[in-house]
């Protein structure tokens, strides 16, 4: 029983990070129907941007700020010079998907180029704190709390603010949004900026686990897809729920009663992803629509 609780706790930690990244991905998908294969590498970008700051001696919470701005800026910049122009040229979502694969490679290996293949960290990893039923490092706790705060902020924005409602409206029915007078281009750009900031933040959360390296986001990408698809693509709340389920499930699968080798735990998430797409493609919170 204790083993299970510890695994669940671990799952909540990684699930939180996946959730933050997944919400960014699904927000963009909601308005553009674009599956961005470079999304994981934006996590890495955020994590490394913070490494630059901490490497210069800044505490993480200070270094995080320019890192988040960089993330938002790059995503917003790409909308302006790449995605927007390609959409206006009539590029299909498949064209854009393939472009995103190329972008992922460019981004990732530029980070390799700049930072090499080494592993970085923000600071020393502290001892695990015993919470009785399970143990987590202080960093893990920060990750869970920090992610929850960000997700709560996003939820609040989507529910209560005018721009949040416009984002949801655009995701529901772009033509109707336009017919209502909503400035689609502006809302699209704001969505990218929010997604960029959120993803960079997610990367920093991921990095807090103690290892920042150039492949970190890429390794998480399929898990993020799993979380998004399980939750229902296009639904931010779905992405949060789906990601937590994915995070916890893959950890629990390594329970001694089940006996799955730790190497294969991501395989469990992958199987969930495939099953969902075959059996209930709209996921938990999605609406039944032509996929």
């Amino acid at each position: 029983m204790e083993e299970a609780l510890q695994l669940i706790a671990n799952g909540v930690v990684i699930g939180s990070v996946i959730a933050v990244a997944a919400v960014g991905l699904t927000l963009v998908f909601g308005i553009l129907r674009l599956i961005n294969f470079a999304h994981g590498d934006f996590l890495t970008l955020g994590a490394f941007a913070a490494v630059v700051g901490t490497g210069a001696g800044l505490p993480l919470y200070v270094a995080a700020i320019p890192a988040i701005l960089v993330g938002a800026g790059v995503m917003g910049g790409l909308e302006k010079v790449l995605w927007g122009p390609m959409r206006r040229r009539g590029a299909s979502t498949v064209n854009l998907l393939i472009i995103s694969i190329g972008l992922a490679l460019v981004l990732r290996y530029t980070l390799f180029w700049i930072f090499g293949s080494g592993v970085y960290r923000y600071g020393p990893i502290s001892q695990r704190i015993d919470f009785g039923l399970f143990a987590l490092t202080p960093q893990d706790v920060i990750i869970v709390v920090g992610s929850a705060a960000a997700l709560f902020g996003v939820a609040l924005m989507l529910q209560k603010t005018r721009i949040g409602k416009a984002m949801r409206a655009l995701s529901d029915n772009k033509d109707l949004a336009e017919a209502s007078g909503i400035d689609v281009n502006r809302v699209t750009m704001i969505t990218w900026l929010i997604a960029g900031a959120l993803t960079a933040y997610g990367g920093i959360m991921l990095g807090l686990q103690g290892r920042v390296f150039a492949n970190m986001g890429w390794f998480l990408l399929l898990l993020i897809f799993a979380g998004v698809i399980l939750g229902g693509i296009g639904s931010a709340y779905g992405a949060m729920i789906g990601s937590m389920i994915i995070g916890v499930t893959q950890e629990l699968a390594t329970h001694s009663a089940i006996g799955l080798p730790s190497d294969l735990k991501t395989g469990v998430a992958f199987l969930v992803l495939i099953l969902v797409l075959l059996v209930r493609p709209q996921g938990i919170m999605g609406r039944k629509q032509a996929l």
Binding site: L97, L264, I274, L277, P281, L291
Partner: peptide, 23 residues
């Protein structure tokens, strides 16, 4: 999966199957 899935989702499924296989 290709029987039912549209291109973008097929992309995700195929890359995932490839990774499962490697694992």
């Amino acid at each position: 999966p290709a029987i039912r899935l549209r291109t973008d989702y097929l992309a995700i499924v195929t890359i995932t199957i490839g990774e499962i296989f490697r694992l």
